[in-house]
Structure formats: C-alpha cells, structure tokens
Computed example of a mutant assay.
Amino acid sequence: MKKAMMTFWSQGYDRTSMSDLTESMGLNSPSIYAAFGSKDQLFQEVVELYLATEGQLIWSAVKAESNARSATEKMLNMSAEVFTQPHKPGGCLVTLGAIHSGKKSTEIHQLLSEKRNNATQMLKDILVQGKMSGEISEKSNVEAIADYYIAIQQGMSIKARDGAGKDSLLKIAELAMNTWNTLT
C-alpha cells in the first residue's frame, strides 16, 4: 500500500496508470483488482494511509499546541517539514492528488476536496477556541483566517512540488505569521 501511496503522491491520480501501480506494487492487475476492487478504491485507501501517516505528522503537532497562534504556526512549519522530506515526493498528496476533475475522476476530486475542507475545519475549530479564550478578537472572522492559512499551506505544497526546499517554505510560513496580529 505504501508503494501505491508513493506512486499516486508523485504522479497524481489521473497520471497514474494501472501499469504504474503494478510496477510499483509488484503485483499484477488482477491481484490489485481482487484486493482493492478498482483504482478509485485503491486511491481512497491510499489517501487514508497518507492522512494517517504524513498528515498525522502535521496535525498531531498542531493539536499539541496550547494556543491558536502557536497551533497555526506549527501547522505551517510542520507542513514545510513534511512537504520537503527526503526520498518522498514534494508537496501534499491531498492538495496535489487530483486538482482537475475530469469525467473519470469526479469522485476522487470530491474526496480530496472534502479532505482539504476537513483541514480547514480543523484549523477553524482551533481558531474558534482562540476566540473563546480571548486570544482572538470577537470581531475577527475565523473562517476567513482559516481559509487564508490553509491557502498558504496549499501554496507551500505547490512550491514544494516545484522544488522549493524546507528553508524557502519556512520563510513563507514566517511571512504568513507576520499577518497574525492584523488578522486576529
């Protein structure tokens, strides 16, 4: 399964063929279909594996923070780390796995959209807690702030895929956090 994850992560859903999967997984097509039912189902399981491993590296660190500002900063800094790991594809599978929705990949696009929206909701929940604790002004729009920082994170994913290193992404994170006081 991890080999399938690496293949989908590096190539995206649409560009990954069954022959790519058979080669990377060391299985023949009938075995893959017998085990997973379809390329779509395999990809869905790969996304869950990605979230449970790579995504968990980011979000478990975020949830360990004591306030909304440090949690948001941790999300961006950990994203810089995870998106630039050696020997792994740059960026985020959930962000980059299926950007365009063709007729054949509508369900996959919806799945990834839902997962991206879940990340936004997790950050929004953290920001709401910050608002309740008085860290964030009552007048602040936590939904817009969550959207903003998740958009920064997704942009960092694209930059990583384009070859940006960890230091470059950390600088982006630092600049984004410079807007915190204005936003909150």
Rank of each mutant, 00 (worst) to 15 (best):
A52G: 15
T22L: 08
L42C: 08
V128T: 10
K104G: 13
Y148K: 04
S24F: 11
S168H: 13
N28S: 14
S10L: 03
L112Q: 10
Q153C: 12
A151R: 11
G163N: 10
K3A: 14
D162V: 03
P30V: 01
L76K: 03
D20Q: 10
G130P: 09
G165P: 12
K88R: 14
K166L: 06
E54D: 14
A146K: 01
K103G: 13
E45N: 14
D40E: 08
M78N: 11
K131C: 10
G134H: 07
L57V: 08
G102L: 02
K171S: 12
L51C: 07
E135S: 02
I158P: 13
R15T: 01
D162I: 01
I108L: 05
T84Y: 15
K171Q: 13
T120A: 13
L169Y: 08
G130A: 03
N67C: 14
I150N: 09
L21K: 07
Q110P: 01
G37K: 05
S31V: 07
K3M: 03
T84R: 06
L170K: 13
L111A: 02
A52H: 11
N28V: 10
I158K: 10
Q85H: 13
Q154V: 06
M6N: 14
F36H: 13
T184V: 08
T184D: 11
